[in-house]
């Protein structure tokens, strides 16, 4: 039985509300909030980046797992905002965790689904007997062009999943759907990503999540009603609700894992923080479906079955606790924190 042995999350404590961003750019805040279903987003502090977020969530996961860091055999950090273009984030994380030097490592990039790709790799390596435990992290401090629609949601956060045997949630199966679809990208040397506007919808997000999820259900012979919870990548609150409806899931199945209204789109952390918030409350025997989405484009779909082990597993502080613990900043502070003003 291979699956999630432990998990941890990190959300920077700063928040900026949609109203504040709308005020600066002359947008109607109510229209934006209604359109996106997002109230506010998390902002990293001046001394936080993808590496620090990755370390903090991984340390929480390791602490909860109560396993010797030396038993970690692989570290994969998925992000679209690695601090270095060349030089891995994974080595920083492994060193901070005290993993030692004998581990498999590479940084992953697949827009917002690099973290779930890491879970698939760790899952395969554990199943193949290459490692006992693998660390998969999705973390981002996502950038957005000032005034762009993305600025209302592009946020920061991360989640870490330790994959191994003797787990709190078994991976029942995983399925990916991938195509070459340039809906969102960032060229070398460019500070902000570009996107295809409405093109990011139907041919990109919806098609890939729909196909991956459908593929997984068919592969496992399951139907939407077999799941207690479903988590989709959440660039805003509307898309996951709509794709859930398309696939035949109900709002109630989506709600527990929908964190985007309070912290925004944490990119590689998005579906994983959603999964963590579901695991925070899940009971043994419950089934969770997760489908990530990464622009470019692809979706990784998973079915997890919660085991008895979750009962004695330390789940505090929960994602909800971290959502609540926050400090609001104004737009000026936000652009300073995000280094959008250059000295």
């Amino acid at each position: 039985m291979v699956g999630i042995v432990s998990y941890g999350t990190y959300i920077p404590r700063y928040r900026i509300v949609v109203d504040e961003i709308a005020r600066i750019w002359g947008e109607d805040a109510e229209v934006v909030k209604r359109g996106l279903g997002v109230e506010q987003k998390s902002v990293p502090g001046l001394d936080e980046d993808t590496a620090t977020i990755a370390v903090e969530c991984a340390r929480e996961a390791l602490r909860r797992a109560k396993i010797d860091p030396k038993k970690i055999g692989a570290v994969f950090v998925g992000s679209e905002s690695h601090p270095y273009v060349v030089k891995p984030t994974g080595t920083v994380v492994a060193e901070a965790l005290g993993v030692g030097n004998e581990y498999f490592c590479a940084d992953l990039e697949f827009a917002c689904k690099a973290g779930t790709a890491g879970i698939q790799i760790c899952y395969a390596m554990v199943k193949a007997g290459m490692i006992d435990y693998g660390v998969a992290i999705g973390a981002d401090t996502s950038q957005s062009r000032p005034g762009d629609a993305l600025e209302f949601t592009a946020s920061a956060g991360g989640a870490c999943f330790i994959i191994g045997r003797n787990c709190i949630a078994e991976i029942e199966g995983t399925f990916s759907f991938t195509s070459d679809t340039p809906d969102f990208w960032r060229r070398e040397g460019q500070p902000y990503p570009s996107h295809g506007g409405r093109f990011t919808g139907q041919p990109a997000y919806f098609r890939h999540i729909f196909m991956a999820t459908k593929g997984l259900l068919e592969k496992l012979g399951l139907k939407p009603s077999d799941f207690n919870y479903v988590v989709f990548h959440q660039p805003n609150a509307k898309f996951p609700m709509r794709v859930a409806k398309m696939l035949g899931f109900g709002k109630e199945q989506v709600r527990t894992g929908l964190v985007v209204p309070y912290i925004g789109n944490t990119y590689s952390g998005s579906s994983l923080i959603g999964l963590a918030s579901v695991l925070d409350v899940a009971k043994p025997g419950e089934r969770i479906l997760v489908t990530s989405y990464g622009s470019g484009a692809g979706s990784d779909s998973f079915s997890f079955v919660v085991t008895d082990k979750i009962e004695e597993f330390e789940r505090n502080p929960t994602v909800l606790d971290k959502i609540r613990e926050c400090e609001f900043i104004d737009y000026g502070t936000y652009v300073k924190f995000m280094r959008k003003i250059r000295r």
């Binding site: 502090g45 001046l46 001394d47 936080e48 980046d49 590496a51 620090t52 370390v55 903090e56 340390r59 601090p83 270095y84 030089k87 920083v92 901070a96």
Partner: peptide, 20 residues
């Protein structure tokens, strides 16, 4: 203790991390 960025050797240099 938390893991944080301490600074960098300029825009092109390495990033320093440590404990705050």
């Amino acid at each position: 203790a938390v893991f944080r960025k301490f600074g960098e050797d300029g825009e092109e240099g390495i990033i320093h991390y440590g404990t705050k």
